[in-house]
Computed example of a mutant assay.
Amino acid sequence: MTDAERAEVRPAMPVPAWLLRRGRRPQAYCHREILDDVRYLADNGVKWTAMPVDFPYRRALYDFFRRRRSYDYVRELYERLRRSARERSGRSAEPGAAIIDSQSVDASETVGEDSRGYDGGTSRDGRKSQILTDTEGLLLEVTVTTADVHDSKAAPALLETFMDQPGRLLRLVWVDSAYQGPAPAKAFARHGVRIEIVRRSDGQRGFVVLARRWVVERTLSRLARSRRLNRDHERRPDHHRQMVWWAAVIRLSRRLAADAPRWPEKRSGRLPRARA
Score class of each variant (00 low, 15 high):
R6T: 10
P14A: 11
A17T: 02
R22F: 03
A28G: 06
C30N: 15
L35R: 01
D36S: 14
D37Y: 10
R39E: 06
R39D: 05
A42T: 13
G45F: 01
K47I: 00
T49N: 01
M51Y: 01
P56D: 06
R58W: 10
F64H: 03
F64A: 00
R69L: 09
Y71H: 07
V74E: 09
R75P: 03
R75M: 10
E79I: 02
E79F: 12
R82A: 14
R83W: 08
R83Q: 13
A85V: 01
S108V: 01
S108A: 07
S108R: 02
E113H: 10
G121K: 11
I131F: 09
D134G: 09
E136W: 01
L138I: 05
L139E: 08
V142R: 12
A147L: 08
F162K: 07
Q165C: 03
L169D: 11
L172C: 02
V173Y: 01
W174D: 02
S177G: 08
P182S: 10
K186Y: 07
K186A: 14
F188K: 00
A189W: 01
H191G: 13
R194S: 11
R194F: 03
I195L: 15
V198Y: 04
V198C: 05
R200D: 07
D202F: 04
V209L: 10
L210I: 11
R213V: 07
A224H: 14
H233T: 00
R241L: 15
V244N: 03
V249F: 05
R254L: 01
R254A: 07
R255A: 15
R255T: 14
A257Q: 03
A257Y: 07
A258F: 00
P272T: 11
